[in-house]
Amino acid sequence: MSRLLLIAFDESDLNSCGGFAAALGLPYDALLLSGSSAVGGEKIFQAGLAEIPTADTIAGLLAVFVHTYSHVAFVSSMRSKDLAARIAGILDAAMITDAIGIESPTTFLRPMVAGAVIATVDAEPPAFVTFRPSNFAAAELTAGTVVPMGMELAPRSQIVKASAKTAGRPDLSQAKIIVSGGKPLKDAATFESVLGGLADALGGAVGATRAAVDTGIAPNELQVGQTGKIVAPNLYIAAGISGSTQHMAGIKDSKVIVAINKDGDAPIFEVADIGIVADLFDVLPQLQAKLPGARS
């Protein structure tokens, strides 16, 4: 029997699943590892975990739980890739990473070589899928019956210390507006005041290039690109970003890309909808003052 199980780490993760579930077109349930939700499918299994344990700690239990489903899907993220591939390995099942399209329940589209090529792949069920929500038309999840689910865990790897979720700015992968910067931002304080200032004025998120993260100007969770976050905002403002293939891989699905760069030959201008050859330190403060709707 064909049936989909959505596995979500928390409510906001689950809320990004509607488009994929609708596109796949199979009856579905959801398994919510933490938090609670009244929508998510016919059955909404709630594990109610206070903290998400390591993948090797929970994968074994989940492998037993998912065995009646033909499809098991997760929103693409570092933590979902960590977990989904471990469960797929236990079950020796197919897995599609970063699905961006569905041709049929056994045929998916996915990007490879930093998004330079799109592969059409076939996978027989049971199939694990991580998908990019921004590539699927948004749809509501159906309401269902909440089923509390106990999990008795035997810890494997132990989390010694973890960064807490920072409140304030929207999550990069869901942000409608992103102000992003590279190495020309010089240092962490400048990065935060110049990019952060405009982002906050627009109610947006802040992103960074790999170079900015590698040099310590920005924290790693802000990295956008092939090996960082894949974003799809309505507006992506790239300030002092030359536009490496790896960075472009992460921003291609943005609705409008604005490039601000002193170098008129920077490759970012080849993909930008609006470009200006100028110093970002001149432009960004003026944008903050002049863009309609920006809070000063």
């Binding site: 020796d92 099942a93 197919a94 897995m95 599609i96 045929t107 990007p111 490879m112 998004g115 330079a116 090529v117 799109i118 592969a119 059409t120 792949v121 076939d122 996978a123 027989e124 291609k252 890309i257 201008f269 080849e270 993909v271 930008a272 909808d273 609006i274 470009g275």
Partner: peptide, 16 residues
């Protein structure tokens, strides 16, 4: 478990 049927180039973003 996964077979690649075909490879294609994504539509290019036009310059603005």
């Amino acid at each position: 478990k996964v077979k690649t049927r075909s490879y294609a180039n994504p539509p290019a973003r036009g310059a603005g």
